[in-house]
Nucleic acid binder design. Structure first.
Lengths: 274, 274
DNA sequence: TAGTGGTCTAGACCACACG
DNA sequence: GTGTGGTCTAGACCACTAC
């Protein structure tokens, strides 16, 4: 337990206390709550930010267990309940996962069950299965204006472009065109992609230390052009789902733009509203 | 405050206590927690269920305020924290909405801001605007097998079918084909639909007491047939988004099947992954 | 048996809205 | 000022997992 260097704890507490007005002596009494100030934010939000920093800095790596709630409470000099609320939100955002009796773990794209966190394409019949991937291309190039805008970089900045086809049950089903931030993903090659078995995001996480946290998708229906049709083994003009995804890491920094074209004759895009 | 009949409170407490083994005297001491039993569920889940019942029964109607946390705590004889956790989950499911300083309110499809809770179609440029609706048809008929299966009724049972076109910025954009459970929606006519200004779900809620809580959607790309093309003012064969939605009320009972065909030349379907 | 997350309580104070 | 939700604390016990 509590194998954390006191120095770190000290830093953390300082960060926490620079919240509102000078916090009264942080003894055992309640009301270390925030004071009125223009930049007010609840304690648990600050704790959440501190934990997120540790996640981002790699202090706790994907798949690993983070310290127990009691340890974190001691480290940040707050009550267990406050840490709990911070972790609750992180768990709601899928940054960590709680497992009763075991601990709280940093989520990972390697995990057995959660491979379809970002791919919502479901077969009409049968279970979701992870298909084979055929990499068509993987090269560095200068970002076109549109991509640069989405990645929040300048036109002409370096990006990595990948094109691939995904096969489900032996059928070409998805044609992906992917742009990645050049600064991350320096050594990425077609070979690496081809050798890798499993989700692409797991590779990014393991090899490049870039974790996809959330994404937004814009979906349209489009007609397959002849080149696309050939790659997907459909007729030209076949209606396809066009899914334009932007993925974000920590700090809501965009790192990937992906345009997928889905064949939806034997699969559909699943979405739940609430 | 606390204008609740004691009889109800009594009922509630009884319901709560039939949880685990015989709860020891429910005094001020802690540990009214559940005992080991095959059908264990946390206290706050039971409270949540009780509150949900009151919502469903109409004790608190959409738009109204529910009793304060303190009142509910007294009513159910639990601590405020337990009620809070129950309400937290209900708020996460969009059944109620908390407003600091005011109270907790039953959500409604009438609300100003939340009109696009179920319609994820966003224009390429400009703000989401609520379009005009043209009802093509509204009639009772016997449920086809496919619809019956989705609505969890028998083939041939009574359903109401609606067909309509939605216009965004004057352009036909959505063609909806809707099937509603016949048992609910008895007096629904094309006239009522046409007269109604605002979201259809608001009409269902106000006139038929049926509240849509959540929905699932299956999305594909399809080609417009000639009839559809005419109604949507596009060429036959134009790729359209096919959105098959099943909507649920309380108790996860399906009450609506809706097949929408979306023109996605100037709009897109927006989705967020996390 | 020990450690972890999960539940529950009781009480305090803060931030916000409204009369 | 009063009432509401929001935050924070401290301590207790329960349920699950592993050793």
């Amino acid at each position: 337990m509590s194998s954390l260097p006191p120095s770190l704890a000290g830093t953390a507490v300082a960060a926490v206390q620079d919240n509102g007005a000078a916090a009264p002596g942080a003894g055992t009494q309640p009301s270390s709550a925030a004071a009125a100030s223009p930049t007010f934010s609840p304690l648990y939000q600050q704790i959440k930010a501190l934990i997120t920093q540790s996640l981002q800095s790699g202090e706790w790596k994907p798949g690993e267990m983070i310290p127990s709630e009691m340890d974190l409470a001691a480290r940040y000099k707050v009550s267990q309940g406050t840490v709990r609320k911070a972790i609750d939100e992180l768990a709601a955002e899928n940054l960590v996962a709680r497992r009763q009796g075991k601990g709280t773990f940093v989520t990972t794209h390697h995990e057995d069950g959660v491979k379809f966190r970002f791919l919502r394409l479901v077969p009409d019949e049968g279970e979701p299965h992870y298909g084979a991937s055929q990499v068509l291309e993987c090269k560095r190039l200068r970002a076109p204006a549109e991509i640069a805008r989405l990645l929040d970089i300048r036109t002409g900045d370096s990006v990595v472009q990948i094109r691939r086809v995904l096969f489900f049950s032996g059928e070409a089903t998805v044609l992906d065109e992917i742009w990645l931030l050049g600064t991350n993903f320096k050594g990425l090659t077609a070979e690496k992609l081809t050798e890798w078995k499993g989700p692409m995001y797991a590779l990014f996480e393991a090899e490049f230390g870039t974790r996809m946290i959330r994404a937004t998708e814009k979906i349209r229906a489009v007609a397959a052009d002849s080149a696309t049709a050939a790659l997907l083994s459909v007729d030209a003009g076949t209606p396809l789902l066009s899914v334009e995804r932007v993925s974000f890491t920590y700090g809501d920094r965009p790192v990937e733009v992906r345009r997928g074209l889905y064949v939806t004759t034997r699969h559909y895009y699943q979405n739940d509203l609430s």
